Every structure is written in structure tokens, then in C-alpha cells.
Simulated scan of single mutants.
Amino acid sequence: MNFFAYLFQDRQANRQNFKGQLVLFLFRLAQLINRSMIAKVIFYPYLLLYRYWVDWVWGIELPRKLTVGKGLSLYHGHALVLNQGVIIGDNCVLRNSTTIGHKKLADGSHSACPRIGNNVDIGANVCIIGDVVIGDNVIIGAGSVVIKDIPANSVAVGNPARILEKKQESIS
């Protein structure tokens, strides 16, 4: 993938959302800079500006070390918190006030971070914590708290999240 295609890979997913386009452009640029120690030294002021503007001003915690597939879509990206160990697949949707990260274990250590598949739609005010795996083509309803794995092609809602229904695959 060339330089410009990499920077603009999330633009189509955020067609009507200029803030989402801008945040993800800045995020992808920070990811590129993060790949090289020389680039980190040269563009250190940019990384500080990214951290200040995106994290503190807009309230969106997208660490530059985060692993995210192409086509990420941010709706009303405010109060969005992602741990840098989270892995997100292609074409996922994140809405406002969502928290995704590890949890503190009884012995004081931290669990692994969630792994989210492709084409996952995460509603507003969702909390996904701990070493959980979210399958492909999953919808997580608003206000859900996910602490267990969710299989592919499912709809999950509630606190704690439970599988509401399994989506049927069309036969074509």
C-alpha cells in the first residue's frame, strides 16, 4: 500500500464525518511515524501535537501503537478510549463513550486486551474489557458490557452482554 493510500484508507468509511476523517488521518500518520526511530525523533513535535489535540482536545484515545485494520469508522468520536494492546479488524464501527481494554486481575497484573474481528459494529457506551475475542460480523448493542467471547455472526446486548441472536447467512 502506498503512502497516500495508507493515510486515507479510512476516508470512505467516514464519508459524512469530517471529524472522523481528520482523526483517522492524524492517527494513520502517527502510526507511520511510529514505525521508525529516526522518524520518531524528527517528528516528535507532531507526536506531541497528535497526543494533545486528539486525546485531550477531542477526547479520543487512539494510541499510535494500536493495531487497526482498514476502514475504521468513528461515529461521534468523543470519550472513546482504546488500549494500545487492542487488535481491531477491518471495517469496524466505533461509537462515542466506548472503552476497550484490559482489566486488572486479582494478583495485580493485567489481562490481555480484546481482539475484535472484521465488520464489527460497536454501539455507544459499550465497555469491552479483558481477554475476550469478538468474532467477525458481530453487532454489540449500546450500553453493553462485554466480558466474555462473542462468536461470529452474532448480536450481543446487555450488562453483562449475552447473545441475543445468531445472524443467519443467506444462501446464494
Rank of each mutant, 00 (worst) to 15 (best):
M1H: 14
N2G: 12
N2F: 00
Y6V: 12
L7R: 04
F8N: 12
Q9H: 07
D10A: 14
R11A: 14
R11G: 00
A13P: 04
A13F: 05
N14Q: 11
N14F: 10
N14H: 09
N14L: 11
R15C: 09
Q21V: 07
L22H: 03
F25Q: 07
L26C: 15
F27M: 04
A30L: 11
A30I: 03
Q31I: 07
L32R: 01
I33W: 06
I33N: 08
N34E: 15
M37P: 14
A39H: 13
A39K: 14
K40M: 14
V41S: 14
V41I: 15
V41C: 13
F43R: 01
P45G: 06
P45E: 11
L47S: 09
L48G: 04
L49C: 07
Y50L: 12
R51I: 00
R51Y: 09
W53Y: 15
V54R: 10
V54Q: 02
W58L: 14
I60K: 01
E61R: 04
P63D: 06
P63V: 05
R64S: 14
K65D: 13
L66Q: 00
L66G: 06
L66F: 02
T67V: 10
G71N: 05
G71S: 04
G71W: 04
L72Y: 04
L74M: 11
L74H: 06
A79F: 10
V81G: 06
V81E: 04
L82E: 03
G85F: 05
V86I: 11
I87D: 01
I87L: 05
I88T: 02
G89S: 07
D90L: 01
D90I: 02
V93N: 14
L94A: 02
L94P: 02
L94Y: 00
N96T: 06
N96F: 07
S97L: 07
T98M: 07
T99F: 07
T99N: 05
T99V: 10
H102I: 03
H102A: 01
K103Y: 05
K104Q: 13
K104L: 14
K104S: 08
A106H: 04
G108M: 01
G108H: 05
G108S: 02
S111K: 00
A112E: 08
C113H: 10
C113I: 02
C113W: 00
P114E: 06
R115A: 08
R115D: 08
I116V: 03
G117K: 07
N118G: 09
G123N: 09
N125C: 15
N125Q: 08
I128K: 08
I129R: 00
G130I: 06
D131M: 06
D131T: 10
V133K: 13
G135D: 00
N137I: 02
V138K: 06
I139H: 11
I139G: 00
G141W: 10
A142Q: 11
S144V: 07
I147S: 06
K148V: 01
D149L: 05
I150L: 15
I150C: 01
A152H: 13
N153V: 02
S154P: 09
V155S: 03
V157E: 02
G158M: 01
G158K: 01
P160L: 05
P160R: 00
A161L: 09
R162T: 13
I163D: 03
L164I: 13
L164G: 00
E165G: 03
E165A: 13
K166V: 13
K166T: 15
K167I: 15
K167Q: 13
E169G: 11
E169F: 10
S170E: 15
S170M: 12
